[in-house]
Design a protein around this nucleic acid. Structure first.
Length: 260
DNA sequence: ATGGCGACGCAACGTCGA
């Protein structure tokens, strides 16, 4: 069994203890992190070494930053979308050598937020996702399996939003973003949570404001997309709400998928 | 729901996130 998880930690400076505690309890094979908000020299490889994990980080000050924590050494680690020049640190990826499944290409992605549909940041989100799609399409099939994880900042369907009527015309739920998400799926991926939980409404993020978590005003915007090659191997997919209940939590919580 | 939170940089409060 292989367990892979993704978690937007909203600053690893603040959340390192939560992450280490979570890894010790859940023992994932791979944990992908987003929004580390720290430069590579601040990233504590030692903290992960001490619990038996390799760690790979692509970060910057204040914003963005992504990492992969792995119980096996990754091969061919990269930290960009080839051909897409971007000063924002939103990608880290590598090959995970699975004993029984071969090489799994694992991506930890922090997709731009977009701010609002009429903003320059939304144009950046669209062009970023188009470049991401082109890259994923060109690399598809070059490894035995592919897993795209991260904070996609897209709620794929109305069921993934606590109040689709109130959010209509907003970022995270717009048809433009959902079409871009579906275009990635169409390359040959499954939304592993949705495949294994057909009609269940679960969220991975809740606004800090308005007592969002207590009132369950959430969205499912963090995803683990698995290549069709893994579809028959998928066993379990779930969202662990417990870290969101801790003191000083991230506004996101871990999303987990397991496969044989 | 359009805030009301929280992280950050920096030492007051503006910017950003989703």
């Amino acid at each position: 069994m292989t367990k892979i998880a993704t978690w937007n930690v909203n600053s690893l400076n603040v959340r390192l203890e939560h992450v280490i505690d979570w890894v010790k309890i859940h023992n994932p094979d791979i944990l992908c992190l987003q929004e580390t908000k720290q430069t590579n020299d601040k990233f504590s490889h030692e903290a992960f070494d001490s619990i038996g994990y390799k760690s790979y980080h692509n970060g910057q000050k204040t914003y963005n930053g992504v990492a992969i924590i792995s119980n096996k050494e990754l091969q061919n680690v990269g930290s960009d979308i080839p051909g897409f020049s971007d000063p924002q640190k939103r990608i880290i990826h590598g090959l995970y050598p699975s004993r029984s499944l071969g090489l799994i290409h694992v991506v930890s992605a922090y997709v731009p937020n977009g701010q609002s549909l009429d903003s320059e940041k939304f144009k950046y989100k669209v062009s970023w996702l188009e470049a991401f799609n082109t890259w994923v399409k060109s690399s598809y099939g070059k490894s035995d399996h592919h897993i795209l994880t991260g904070d996609f900042n897209i709620a794929p369907r109305d069921i993934d939003c606590h109040d689709p009527e109130a959010w209509k015309g907003n970022i995270l739920v717009s048809q433009i973003e959902r079409d871009l998400f579906d275009a990635i799926i169409d390359i040959g991926f499954d939304d592993s949570f949705r495949v294994l939980n057909k009609d269940i409404q679960k969220f991975s993020w809740w606004d800090y404001r308005m007592a969002g978590f207590r009132r369950n005003l959430g969205m499912r915007i963090d995803h683990i997309l698995t290549s069709h090659s893994l579809k028959e191997n998928l066993t379990t997919a779930y969202i662990d709400e417990d870290p969101r209940k801790l003191e000083r939590p991230s506004d996101h919580t871990p999303v987990i998928t397991e496969f044989r």
